[in-house]
């Protein structure tokens, strides 16, 4: 078992879920309608639960405890992609990000449930049921708003164009990708990206949204290797504001 490769994979999965979970939680109390406020808050809670499950696996491999991993690292130690770091923007952007991200995440969890690394397979087999509800939500809203009014269609279209280079950054390969693939722990990111494109196209084809040709877009990379957007460190500072007042306090 290649422990470094597994740890890097677990950090990437956990950090993406944690940061998007926090971003989704910023809709609590200000959602455009009550149902969407609750939906984003619920998905935030699920994603924090998913990150906890992966941080717990890391802890079992000798890393710090989950709270320390979540709150006491700086941006350069995070492996998340830029897509999840971006501010929530307006609702159309948050919806499109959630749609693009969760289609990829659902594919990842299906592969992970088959992984030869059994602890992660058990976690993924359990958590993928929750992700189905995230996909159901994303697809329902994108289909509704992607066919509704001229304004809703043009807003979603602009957000889709803006988010797409960041979304392609989700598929930055692990430095250990060849090891992970050959030992049947996790497939190559290019496989996941190809399936993801098919998966989102099936939904987009049922809307009036247009998707630009993928080969003309350069992905925004770096997050997996610790190079982040300007938005991550301020978010981490905010997340750790309370714990930093007195890190030794028992809660």
């Amino acid at each position: 078992m290649n422990e470094l490769a597994i740890k890097e994979l677990l950090y990437t999965l956990a950090d993406n879920q944690l940061i998007l979970g926090h971003r989704n939680s910023e809709w609590t109390g200000i959602g455009p309608i009550l149902e969407e406020d609750i939906a984003f808050s619920s998905m935030a809670q699920d994603k924090l639960g998913h990150s906890l499950a992966f941080y717990t696996l890391l802890h079992e491999l000798g890393e710090s405890d989950p709270d320390t991993l979540a709150f006491m690292r700086n941006a350069a130690q995070f492996h998340c992609c830029h897509l999840v770091e971006l501010p929530i923007g307006e609702y159309d952007f948050s919806l499109i990000r959630h749609f693009l991200y969760d289609h990829a995440e659902a594919i990842r969890f299906e592969y992970l449930a088959q992984s030869s690394y059994e602890p992660a397979a058990k976690v993924a087999a359990k958590l993928r049921g929750e992700l189905k509800y995230h996909l159901l939500h994303a697809n329902t809203m994108v289909k509704q708003l992607g066919n509704a009014t001229a304004e809703s269609i043009s807003r979603l279209q602009q957000s889709l164009n803006y988010a797409f280079p960041y979304a392609l950054g989700m598929f930055q390969p692990s430095p250990y990708e060849a090891d992970l693939a050959s030992s049947n722990i996790f497939p190559r990111e290019s496989n996941i990206q190809a399936q993801w494109l098919e998966s989102i196209q099936k939904i987009l084809a049922q809307t009036q949204l247009q998707q630009t040709a993928v080969h003309t877009i350069s992905p925004v990379l770096g997050g997996r290797l610790g190079q982040h957007s300007e938005y991550l460190q301020p978010l981490l500072d905010e997340m750790a504001e309370v714990i930093n007042i007195d890190p030794s306090t028992e809660w």
């Binding site: 609750i38 619920s42 998905m43 509800y133 939500h137």
Partner: peptide, 9 residues
């Protein structure tokens, strides 16, 4: 079904 998300997860 109105919404798959409610007052608890």
């Amino acid at each position: 079904l109105r919404t798959p998300f409610g007052p608890t997860l």
